[in-house]
């Protein structure tokens, strides 16, 4: 089975922030926000929030970020969920959409057991079986979506036994076989470093950096030897160091700050974005 290669690049996005209703007013005023990402499941294409429509009018790209497809799950992706994501991308005129390499539900369908919803992203075992299923699911999603798809590495709290791939090798083969683009979350690479002992530099060595559509940056905190990817804390030096490592290898088309809770003031958000820009600008100068 020949690899289709990487799909066409959606262009440069710049520095963005995760759009949330709680900080909609601040985002409208923040200087230097080039684009935003929205949680796809929280929006209805026919009833887009007014502040978000104003950003679209100003020409800011809006990228839908899905959390419920579960493309790493054993089942084929749900057609209604895919159609909803496609409709939202059309309504927003989005250059691409993103989702996760994760499973979020189980049971029913393939199994004579009841259905369970995790309500959150769970890691896929990095095995040949799981990779084959993921690739098949990604192709079904790509057929249903009007724009390129980017997939994100998730934060892991546990490890599957008997894995056959490292994270980077798993991502490399996924890209090779499907042409999907990557959303690399550097906070999740840091999470997996603390929680699973996986070196972010090795993951960046092995994954195809030219397939990166954009990068996620977020804060978290460590408790009892476990990194919690909370999106409720400021972005700290360890996560910014992984971002710097990534930017020393490639200039990512976009970098996006995620904040979901304990929102700081507008000044606080601006400072977070400045910290991200300082890293991307510094590494760009060094590369140039």
């Amino acid at each position: 089975m020949g690899g289709p290669g990487i799909t066409e690049a959606p262009g440069t996005l710049g520095t963005g922030i995760g759009w949330r209703p709680e900080i909609a007013d601040d985002i409208a005023e923040l200087p230097g926000v080039d684009w935003v990402e929205v949680v796809a499941e929280n929006l209805c294409p026919g009833h887009l929030p007014e502040p978000l429509r104003r950003l679209r009018t100003r020409g800011l790209p809006v990228v839908p970020h899905g959390v419920s497809l579960g493309l790493g799950g054993a089942e084929r992706p749900d057609l209604a969920r895919l159609a909803a994501l496609a409709d939202l991308a059309e309504a927003l005129g989005s250059p691409l959409v993103s989702e996760h390499i994760a499973f979020v539900r189980s049971g029913g369908g393939l199994l004579p057991s009841h259905r369970l919803e995790a309500g959150h992203l769970l890691p896929v075992p990095r095995t040949r079986d799981a990779l084959d299923v993921l690739c098949a699911n990604v192709r079904l999603a790509q057929e249903a979506l009007p724009v390129p798809l980017a997939l994100e590495n998730i934060a892991g709290y546990l490890s599957w036994p008997d894995e056959e791939f490292t994270e980077g090798a798993f991502l490399a083969e996924l890209v090779e076989r499907t042409g999907v683009r990557l959303l690399v979350d550097v906070a999740n690479l840091h999470t997996n470093h603390v929680n699973r002992g996986e070196d972010p530099a090795r993951a960046l060595d092995e994954l195809p950096v030219e397939a990166i559509a954009y990068v996620h940056v977020a804060g978290g905190h460590e408790r009892d030897g476990v990194w919690h990817d909370t999106h409720a804390h400021p972005v700290g030096p360890p996560v910014l160091e992984v971002l710097a490592d990534l930017c020393s290898r490639v200039t990512p088309p976009g970098v996006l700050l995620e904040r979901d809770d304990d929102f700081p003031s507008a000044d606080g958000l601006a400072a977070e974005l400045d910290a991200v820009r300082a890293v991307t600008a510094r590494t760009a100068c060094r590369a140039g």
Partner: peptide, 12 residues
């Protein structure tokens, strides 16, 4: 798919 379904359901 069936093997993965079993493994994921047991974990979840």
């Amino acid at each position: 798919r069936r093997r993965l379904a079993r493994a994921q359901h047991d974990l979840l």
